[in-house]
Design a protein around this nucleic acid. Structure first.
Length: 707
DNA sequence: GAGCACTGC
């Protein structure tokens, strides 16, 4: 139960807050209050205008209703469109109402780091405090919070889950607001499930607020218990969006998108167009179609097609965000980044192809697929909303009205726990004392096949005991702490324990955890780039080649790195991030008690040490040349699926390909491609993963049964 | 022979 004096203080705080304001607020549920005053806290003109702005936000009308709901219910679900101010205002209302009065803090979690940092900055500005004092944030690589002073703390949900390791009851917080819950990421779902457990243990002392744009509210109410859960809906600041559909299904959404853009440009008032397409190939195709047409058509000179996807450099993204010159209409061809992560101002028209690329693990084959699938109805609404941010807009859906209502488009997205590899989540839950993952109280239970896949993977790495299912001392416990996929974490731990190649392993693991290759050439300069890249190339494969690039980058003085990347056609964004990751990982190894000299170990000229080190974690990703199929392809040792070398690999253009390889990832798109490929000797598999491979041939034996 | 959506610790 809530300590009486604290609750009383808070109620007084609520009353004080009411006393400061002026006008009449009306909430639903019969909770109508008069409020007085109007003095701003700071008294300066700037503060007064900030207060004015805060009052104009839709959330303000629901302020008392929200505070009342949170005061009287353990869990409150808040739905509201973007622009309603819930992410910035609700934590402030709670603070003003005294929820942080007794030394506890109010947490607000976000799925993405930039969002957490930006929100904290804005709220600090609104409250007139220095960021990192009363208002702070904590995300990977950046902590601007002070345990003594911070009362409103923005974090990523992954960071808060990690705080559970040190403080399983999250006792530093009185209220935890989980924002953007509609994303249903693994981290969000994990956090929600943990919060339900913590709420029970803290016996009414922790309030949970779940906020979301378009939420499966009923599911969450049922999960947290209908009696203890309130629902509040806040209207957004969106303008009406007129929706248009095709009369008949289109054959090709790229052509249809281009045609629609041209028609808008021809017929509609000036205003930018945002086009949603599934991938960057489609984006490039659409843009080049428009550019080709523009040669022959002068009227298209005032139409500026631009790409927007996560693979672009910061500068590349900025071009699409900047306003076009007078009289020019931007047509931004974007992937899903523009649905959630990036907000583009000035968009009046949205063109939505109705598809998205989504990653999913096929439990039958154990292979990742990147599939182009119809979007959910929630996602369609979200995309449409991008046209109505500043004035009434229009959305052109590249499918028929009949299809839009049909089951072709599911109501909501499939949450990540139902489609992605779960080994990292399984490790987290084990570390937090969840012994039986099959019986855990999930927001939405994952398919059993995904769970057993994860448990088998963890057992084969030695992270959990195959018989008891509990984390192994030392290895398993360290693996939990590392911010890495378990196989990569295993490589890193083994590099210091067994192989003495920490310098290279840090680089390799950091690069592989980011997934992409740093070798990126602008179109048209491929040949020139390939020539330059020869200096980095290693016979042993992609990983050593990328390691060479990263170590070269790190050996370059910081101020010269950008230029160095430009001359060598390398992604400085990726290499910079990999550098930060490897530094953070090194910090973990220090914390685990490894000495400076252990961490300085290098394999020097003996690349086989690093190769073996990679095998020790990635052994499940082994493949052998497929002689029967003509020799250029591979066959996975686990499952036996056919696979090809990804075009980004150093082996793609090679005739002499190694007989046995391990790879960082396999992904089925048009074909199954393996990526991040390293040559190995087959006997390393039986030497380093004898439990996984039978000694006679390098083929997997059945993994140990688990749990 | 020719390509990977998006996050996060």
């Amino acid at each position: 139960m809530q300590a009486p004096d604290i609750a009383a203080k808070r109620r007084k705080g609520l009353a004080d807050a009411l006393d400061r304001d002026a006008g009449t607020v009306e909430g639903t549920g019969g909770f109508v209050q008069r409020y007085y005053g109007g003095a701003s806290l700071g008294g300066s003109a700037r503060r007064a205008s900030i207060d004015e702005q805060r009052r104009r936000l839709p959330a303000f009308k629901h302020r008392l209703q929200l505070l009342y709901a949170i005061e009287t219910h353990l869990t409150t679900i808040v739905t509201g469109e973007p622009g309603s101010g819930k992410s910035t205002q609700l934590p402030q209302y709670l603070y003003e109402a005294g929820w942080a009065a007794d030394g506890k803090a109010i947490a607000c979690t976000q799925p993405r780091r930039v969002a957490a940092a930006m929100l904290a900055q804005r709220v600090a500005d609104e409250m007139g405090v220095e960021l990192g004092t009363t208002v702070g944030f904590s995300v990977r690589f950046s902590d601007a919070s002070d345990p003594q002073a911070t009362r409103i703390k923005y974090l990523t949900d992954g960071t808060l889950v990690r705080e559970c390791y040190a403080d399983p009851l999250l006792s530093a917080y009185s209220v935890i607001m989980v924002d953007e819950a509609q994303d249903r990421t693994i981290a969000t779902d994990t956090l929600l499930a943990l919060l339900k457990k913590v709420q029970r243990k803290r016996r009414g002392d922790l309030r949970v607020v779940i906020s979301s744009a378009t939420l499966d509210a009923e599911r969450l109410r049922a999960f947290f218990g209908r009696d203890d859960t309130a629902t509040v809906s806040i209207s957004g600041q969106l303008f009406p969006v007129d929706t248009q559909y095709l009369d008949a299904p289109c054959e090709n959404y790229v052509t249809a998108a281009v045609e629609t853009v041209l028609r808008i440009h021809e017929l509609e008032a000036l205003g930018d167009i945002l086009v949603f397409l599934p991938g960057k190939d489609d984006i490039a195709a659409a843009i080049s179609q428009i550019e080709d047409l523009a040669y022959a058509n002068e009227r298209l000179a005032s139409l500026l097609p631009l790409p927007m996807h996560a693979g672009l450099s910061v500068d590349g993204q900025r071009v699409a965000l900047e306003p076009a010159s007078a009289g020019v209409r931007k047509a931004i061809f974007a992937t899903n980044v523009a649905e959630t992560s990036v907000t583009i101002d000035g968009v009046l028209y949205v063109v939505d192809c109705g598809f998205v690329k989504q990653r999913l693990l096929d439990p039958a084959t154990g292979l990742d697929r990147l599939a182009t699938i119809p979007i959910s109805k929630s996602s369609a609404r979200q995309r449409a909303g991008r046209a109505g941010r500043t004035q009434p807009g229009k959305v052109f859906r590249l499918y028929t009205h009949a299809a839009s209502g049909s089951s072709l488009f599911p109501q909501h997205d499939v949450p990540e726990v139902c489609r992605l590899p779960l080994a990292p989540m399984a490790l987290t839950l084990k570390a937090l004392g969840v012994d039986n993952l099959a019986r855990f109280d999930y927001v939405q239970p994952p398919p059993p096949a995904l769970l057993s896949h994860a448990l088998e993977a963890l057992a084969s790495l030695g992270a959990i005991d195959a018989q008891t299912g509990s984390l192994t001392q030392g290895f398993g416990l360290h693996l939990v702490e590392l911010p890495l996929d378990p196989p990569l974490g295993a490589c890193l731990l083994n590099s210091v324990r067994r192989f003495g190649c920490v310098r290279e392993a840090l680089a390799a693991v950091a690069l592989l955890s980011l997934g992409e290759t740093p070798f990126v050439a602008p179109s048209g300069r491929q040949a020139e780039a390939r020539e330059d890249w020869r200096d980095f190339m290693a016979r042993e494969g992609d990983v050593l080649t990328r390691v060479n690039a990263l170590l070269g980058y790190q050996d370059t003085p910081a101020r010269a790195r950008q230029q160095w990347c430009r001359t060598h056609f390398l992604s400085s964004r990726l290499l910079d991030q990999a550098t930060r990751v490897s530094r953070q990982l090194e910090g973990y190894l220090v914390r685990f008690g490894h000495s400076r000299s252990e961490l300085a170990s290098s394999c020097g000229r003996d690349a086989s040490l690093l190769q073996k080190c990679l095998v020790s974690g990635l052994f499940a990703n082994a493949a052998r040349r497929d002689g029967a199929a003509g020799g250029s392809g591979y066959r996975l040792l686990r499952g036996g699926a056919a696979a090809d070398i990804h075009p980004s690999s150093v082996y793609f253009a090679e005739d002499a390909r190694p007989e046995y390889v391990i790879f960082a990832s396999a992904m089925a798109t048009t074909k199954t491609y393996i990526q991040g490929v390293t040559a190995i000797e087959p006997e390393w598999l039986t030497e380093l993963a004898p439990h996984y491979f039978s000694a006679s041939q390098a083929a997997p034996s059945r993994p140990h049964p688990t749990n």
